[in-house]
Design a protein around this nucleic acid. Structure first.
Lengths: 210, 210
DNA sequence: GTCTATAGAGAGATAGAC
DNA sequence: GTCTATCTCTCTATAGAC
């Protein structure tokens, strides 16, 4: 799976350069010239390795989505208790002002109109929500509630990025996350509280969640 | 303040067309030609009213930010109890798959590198968080907690947009919002519960929040 | 496989008739 | 004030030498 060799291939250098430039400016606004300059590769070589700009984008965006999901999976599947894993994920060190490399692509007109690129972005979020959902289930939530909270958790992170970026201040990511964790803690207290059953999902006679 | 007359000025039509196109494709990817086509105005006229593409963008983005904030303010300052106003805002009807007209601009390379445009985006979020903060205070939260929750709330909406857009499915906005509201409800229960003081902010002797 | 040179389309912007 | 015509620059992509 592409072990780190001393000298990366020209192809890999092109992809890497594209990934970096996409993270900074998006796909649509990144020109082949910029990719060549950043990778130190000559003009025609890009079109030797990729038929078009979109084919390079497809590879580069696909890799970014996979790498980002893999990093999340590492945090969300350690030996810690599920609730701790969730908190670790939420509080993970992030370059909040730079934004999410994957999430920002949802505003890229080229990504959204190219099925291949869109699919990579979509898969990333599907996978991330699935990971968080099983963690919430492990932490004791019912499946529907777990899925809902997982979605909220991912939204908090993505929204934290948007806010930090908008104001040029990473502290908004921190506030968004801590506000959410504060509510999760409150909820943890009430979950062991019988008075809470009133507004939890109804249960059927055999105990399954309705 | 620009009352609706029967025939909008050429200038206003240009701005309106730009706003629509920015909502669909962002600022960087929108060309003067597209603006002219959409507004039905001839080639040179754009440059009669605006020195450059950026000056048009400045007006159009500024208006979008103001209009969007005004709409939020309307929901967040009605006669309802504060908690109801917050829920109304969170559950408001949104075109989730289209994304937030303002939030999406945080991924636009032209917006982020042009002070004027960036400031409009930043002001929108500053104003929105301020509105929600005072609603959370009215609902009984301490100032620091209120600001944190307001930030989380805005992040949930922005993240809901990102997810809905990424997957082309508005139900993710719904899940993110309902997951958040569920936690707020749990928190409302615990807030009237003395056992909760344990993990609330410490208080100084005069009762101020530390 | 990698380079230099360049084609064709469309970008932002201007000139000048009406 | 609004239009048509056009300029220059950069974009994506190709040709062809090495």
């Amino acid at each position: 799976m592409n072990v780190d060799r001393g000298t990366p291939s020209t192809r890999d250098r092109l992809i890497w350069a594209a990934q970096e430039l996409y993270a900074a400016n998006g796909v649509a606004a990144t020109t082949p010239r910029q990719v060549l300059a950043r990778s130190g590769v000559g003009q025609g070589s890009l079109y030797h390795h990729f038929p078009s700009k979109l084919d390079l984008a497809s590879e580069a965006v696909g890799r970014t989505a996979e790498q980002t999901l893999r990093a999340a999976a590492a945090t969300l599947s350690g030996a810690l208790p599920a609730r701790q894993r969730i908190y670790s994920y939420l509080r993970r060190d992030r370059d909040a002002v730079a934004g999410c490399r994957v999430g920002r692509l949802t505003a890229d007109p080229l990504v959204m109109t190219t099925d291949d690129l869109r699919d990579s972005v979509s898969s990333y979020f599907t996978g991330l929500i699935a990971l968080l959902t099983s963690n919430f289930i492990d932490a004791g939530a019912a499946e529907n509630a777990a899925r809902e909270r997982a979605t909220t958790a991912v939204a908090v992170i993505q929204g934290g990025y948007v806010l930090s970026r908008a104001m040029g201040d990473a502290s908004h990511m921190h506030s968004a996350v801590e506000g959410f964790i504060g509510l999760l803690n409150d909820s943890a207290l009430t979950e062991s509280d019988a008075s809470l059953q009133a507004h939890r999902p109804r249960r059927t006679q055999n105990g399954a969640t309705a």
